[in-house]
Each structure stands twice: as structure tokens, then as C-alpha cells.
């Protein structure tokens, strides 16, 4: 289930263990949750049906928990417990809905940014995902199914999102996509296309991330103080990288690559902390593949020459 559900449970569990909430308070909270579910179900059925299916009840409950969890997450830990104890769940739910509405607006702005910064490279899954992201805002029912992500988001990110769902997932996905777009735009489009063609000749139709091969080559070049704008890694460059990587453990290599990511940020003019952190995470996730390729003797499949 979503991290919001876990978040709501975390808040109540922490309140219970710290003595801020008694077991009676927790039982009362559960009953208040059921009352809220009853009211929500009645509203969902326009007060015309006294019963709903178990599946629908579970979905509505997940949505309520997601919405309240999203608001409590914003409050931070001690404040979240205080709010949970002092406010009614209906009020917390209303505040959660308000928070979701703000995130929807932010998501729409991010989608505009993604569209404006989209790379001039053809990729079917990227194009379809952009369409689906637009459709998300039409399909998303934040009042009753806020925990759902009613869109087929296929395009894989360099650094995938594993735990989020609903509007939180969409906003985070868009944030990362904006970064990846901006990163790609720092390089010559023709060179990027040549690199992608060498990486996967069918890159325009296959489900691949466009940013990753570019980022890995840029990191590799930065490691040997090469010209990262050129993007290509010549065999002698690769041999040099191989020497650097060979005698280091995986954790040592991660540290080296995180520093290299900082160097790439300096060279390409990436200054925002979150963007630097994102490139560092790309660098860290590339290390196991580099190590495996090194071991298998086919580093040229990861650090590409074109």
C-alpha cells in the first residue's frame, strides 16, 4: 500500500508509543475513520444507496487514508500527532483535499515545463507518456480515489519512483522528467541522437530512458577530465576509466561517481541542490552496471563510442 497509509499508521503508532495517544484514543480514531468512510460512501452514491461493495469501500478507505496522510506528512511529526488528536477526521480530510488541489495545480505547471523542455528526440513511449500525463489530470478523482494513478505512465525514468502513488507520484515523476529534459538539453541534440543510436538503434520505438546513456557517458568523461560536451568515449578513454574502476570496490566507486556527478553539475551549470542530488543518484545507480560490465569485459556496452 501507499506510503501515505504507512504514514498515517506511523503517526498513530508513534503517538501510542510515546504516550501521546492512549489505546482508547486509537480505538476512537478507528471508529471516526469508519464514520468518515460511511459519510464518504453516502456522498459517493448521492445518498441513494445504503450499501456499497467491499471493493469500493476499500478503495474509498484507501483514498481517505491517502488524503489525510498527505496532509499529516506536510505537518511534520510532532505537529501531525497534535492535529490528529485535536481535529476531526473530516477537517483533516478537507485539509488533505486542499493540499491535493494545490499539488494538482503544481503538477499542471510541471507538465507545462516538461512539454516546453522536451528534447527534440523521437521516442514513442515518451510521447505516449506525455499524452497520458495530460489525461491524468482529466481522469484523476481526488475526492474519492485520490490514491489512484489513473494513467499508463510507461516511459522509464533514469531513477524510478518506487513508493509514491496518486498526485504525489505524478508531481515527483514530472519533477524528475523536467530535470532529465533540462539535462539532455545541455548537450548538442545531434550528438545525443548519435549516442542513442549507438546505444540502441531502435531507440525511437523502444521503451528506454533517453537520459541515462547520456548521463553515464558524461560521468565517464568527467571521471577522466575529458570533454563531456563531446559525449563520445573513445577506446583509450575507456581504458583509462577501466583502470580507475578496476581496483575499487563498489562502495568506493559510488563515492567516486558521486564526486564526479558534482563535477558534471559544475561543468553543465546545474546549481539546484535537488538536481545535483538527482544526478548523484543516477551516478550511484550506474555503478553496479559499470562493475558488471567491467567484470564481463564489455564496458563498451555501457560507456559508448559513436
Amino acid at each position: 500500500m501507499s506510503n501515505q497509509k504507512a504514514h498515517l499508521y506511523q503517526v498513530s503508532a508513534s503517538a501510542l508509543s510515546s504516550g501521546l495517544m492512549t489505546p482508547d484514543d486509537a480505538a476512537l480514531l478507528q471508529q471516526r475513520l469508519l464514520d468518515l468512510l460511511g459519510n464518504t460512501a453516502a456522498r459517493y452514491r448521492f445518498f441513494e444507496s445504503s450499501s456499497i461493495t467491499t471493493e469500493l469501500a476499500q478503495e474509498l478507505l484507501s483514498s481517505i487514508i491517502y488524503t489525510i496522510g498527505l496532509y499529516l506528512k506536510k505537518c511534520g511529526m510532532p505537529e501531525a500527532v497534535r492535529q490528529l488528536k485535536s481535529m476531526t477526521l473530516s477537517d483533516l480530510h478537507r485539509l488533505g483535499i486542499k493540499e491535493i488541489e494545490e499539488q494538482i495545480l503544481m503538477g499542471k505547471r510541471l507538465l507545462d515545463q516538461v512539454k516546453l523542455s522536451a528534447p527534440e528526440i523521437t521516442n514513442r513511449s515518451y510521447r505516449d507518456t506525455l499524452r497520458e500525463l495530460g489525461a491524468f489530470f482529466l481522469r484523476y478523482d481526488h475526492l474519492y480515489f485520490s490514491h489512484e494513478t489513473p494513467s499508463a505512465i510507461e516511459y522509464p525514468l533514469c531513477n524510478p519512483i518506487s513508493e509514491l502513488n496518486g498526485i504525489e507520484f505524478i508531481c515527483e515523476y514530472l519533477r524528475r522528467l523536467v530535470f532529465e529534459n533540462e539535462f539532455l538539453r545541455r548537450f548538442d541534440a545531434e550528438r545525443v541522437k548519435s549516442l542513442l543510436y549507438k546505444y540502441c538503434a531502435d531507440y525511437s520505438t523502444l521503451l528506454i530512458n533517453l537520459c541515462e546513456p547520456v548521463a553515464v557517458n558524461a560521468l565517464g568523461l568527467a571521471l577522466i577530465n575529458g570533454n563531456i560536451a563531446a559525449l563520445t568515449i573513445k577506446p583509450k578513454d575507456r581504458a583509462q576509466i577501466e583502470d580507475i574502476l578496476r581496483n575499487r570496490t563498489e562502495s568506493e566507486t559510488v563515492l567516486v561517481f558521486e564526486k564526479v556527478a558534482d563535477a558534471v553539475c559544475d561543468i553543465t551549470g546545474i546549481s539546484a541542490y535537488t538536481e545535483q542530488a538527482y544526478l548523484q543518484s543516477i551516478a550511484a545507480s550506474a555503478v553496479p552496471r559499470l562493475k558488471a560490465a567491467l567484470k564481463a569485459g564489455n564496458l563498451e556496452n555501457v560507456l559508448i563510442t559513436f
Binding site: L34, L37, G38, A41, A42, S50, S51, I52, T53, T54, E55, A57
Partner: peptide
């Protein structure tokens, strides 16, 4: 497989 919240 249904849930009822009111008095039925």
C-alpha cells in the same frame, strides 16, 4: 461482498 454503514 457488501458493506453497509447505515441501518440497512
Amino acid at each position: 461482498g457488501r458493506v453497509e454503514f447505515g441501518q440497512g
